[in-house]
Amino acid sequence: MKKAIIVVYGKDRTGIIYNVTKILFDNNINVLDIKQTIVDGYFNMMTIADVSKSKTLNKVKKALEEYGKKASLSINFQLEDAFLAMHNL
């Protein structure tokens, strides 16, 4: 399974999870796990998603970036392998 990690952080507002997961849904990406915290009004979310079936990964990146800009959020979409390499022995 090819997985991606989507990290979202910034000032909390309504609809963040809705908008991010909608972009994923539109591109045939299945969400496997969502973790989120809110500290001092700042929203942090990490989504792990199965991207094996998506053929439009570049489109996802762009769509997430655009939404990030519009909602003043930092959104990063990266394949999972680099995270695993960095944080696991």
Binding site: V7, K35, N44, S74, N76, Q78, H87
Partner: peptide
């Protein structure tokens, strides 16, 4: 299974972006 915590994910992301 190897898992990534939310803090680790943010740490990695910030290393590249900031």
């Amino acid at each position: 299974m190897n898992t990534i915590s939310i803090e680790q994910a943010i740490e990695t992301t910030e290393m590249f972006s900031k």
